[in-house]
Design a protein around this nucleic acid. Structure first.
Length: 260
DNA sequence: ACTAATGTTGTAGG
DNA sequence: GCCTACAACATTAG
C-alpha cells in the first residue's frame, strides 16, 4: 500500500485526530510488526501524550511528550481511526478520545520506538533541489530504477512512482545513473516532484486495498500511465507498454518513449 | 499449483 | 564501500 503519497495521505488524515491525545494503553500481538519486547513497548507508550504526527520517507513518525514512535506500513499496513478490529489487527492504541488500529495482513510493516533506520534515509524527494539531485544522481554507478528505489538515496519513492516518474521523464529504467545528462536529470527531478504532488492531490493509489486512516480510497491509480498497464497502448505513442524485471521488481515502461 | 503483489533486510559474490 | 542477485518474511488474488 504505501509509498510517499499514500503515507502522506494517511498522515494528513490521522494527524489532526491525534494531536494532543493521550495514549491510555497500547497492545501488540505480532512478533513481525513489533519485534522485541512487545509488552515493554506498550508499557513505554501508556500515559504518553501525542505532540504531532509527520511523515519522513515512507515512515509515519509520532512525536510524544517523551520519545517517538515510528510506523512503517510495509506492503499491506493500514492505520485506522475508530475502526473495528479484524483478524489482521496487530496494534491497538486506546486514546483518551477514540482508538487507533494498526492492521496488516502480511505483517511486513513495523511499529518501533525511535528506529535508527530513519537516520539512514536520504533526502525528501519533494524538498531536494535540482543541483543536489543532479550531483547525487550522476555520482552513482547504478541503474536508475534501483537507485531511485533505494531509500538512502531518496526517501519515499517505491515501485509505482519510480515507474511513473521514469515514464514522465522519458528515461529507460535500466539507464546508468552516472550517464544521465544534466538536462535529463533536470527532467527527472521535475517528473518525480510532479508525479508525487499529483498523486498526493489524488490521495494516493489504491491498487488493492489501500485506504487512509478514515477508510477512504485514493484515486491516483486511474491516472497511472505505465504501472499495471502491460500490453496496453502507451498514452503518448500507442506502443504497447512493456513489463520487465529490474532489481527483482516488476517494471513497466514504454519502449518507444523510454529508449536506452 | 503457481505467480506476483505499493517493502525491507541480510547474505554472498564481484 | 558500492553494486547485483537472491532468499526470506506472511498473506491474498488471479
Amino acid at each position: 500500500m504505501p509509498e510517499l503519497p499514500e503515507v502522506e495521505t494517511v498522515v494528513r488524515s490521522v494527524a489532526p485526530h491525534l494531536a494532543g491525545r493521550k495514549i491510555l494503553s497500547a497492545e501488540f500481538n505480532s512478533r513481525h510488526v513489533t519485534p522485541g519486547n512487545r509488552a515493554k513497548l506498550a508499557e513505554k507508550l501508556a500515559g504518553r501524550t501525542i505532540r504531532d504526527t509527520r511523515r519522513r520517507g515512507k515512515f509515519i513518525v509520532i512525536t510524544l511528550d517523551e520519545g517517538m514512535l515510528s510506523i512503517h506500513l510495509g506492503m499491506t499496513g493500514k492505520l485506522l481511526l475508530d475502526a473495528p478490529r479484524t483478524d489482521y489487527t496487530h496494534g491497538v492504541f486506546t486514546l483518551d478520545h477514540g482508538t487507533l488500529l494498526y492492521d496488516d495482513p502480511r505483517q511486513f510493516g513495523k511499529i518501533e520506538w525511535s528506529p535508527k533506520r530513519i537516520d539512514k534515509l536520504g533526502p525528501e524527494p519533494l524538498e531536494i533541489g535540482l543541483e543536489e539531485f543532479t550531483k547525487r544522481l550522476r555520482s552513482r554507478k547504478s541503474r536508475v530504477k534501483p537507485l531511485l528505489m533505494n531509500q538512502s538515496f531518496l526517501a519515499g519513492l517505491g515501485n509505482i512512482y519510480v515507474d511513473e516518474a521514469l515514464f514522465a521523464a522519458g528515461i529507460h529504467p535500466l539507464a546508468m545513473a552516472s550517464r544521465i545528462s544534466a538536462p535529463r536529470a533536470a527532467k527527472l527531478h521535475q517528473a518525480i516532484q510532479e508525479t508525487l504532488r499529483l498523486a498526493i492531490e489524488h490521495r494516493g493509489s489504491s491498487i488493492s486495498d489501500y485506504v487512509d486512516a478514515e477508510g477512504r480510497r485514493g484515486y491516483f491509480q486511474v491516472m497511472h500511465r505505465v504501472y499495471g498497464r502491460e500490453d496496453e497502448p502507451c498514452l503518448k505513442c500507442a506502443t504497447a507498454i512493456k513489463k520487465i524485471v529490474v532489481g527483482q521488481r516488476g517494471t513497466h515502461f514504454c519502449p518507444e518513449c523510454q529508449k536506452r
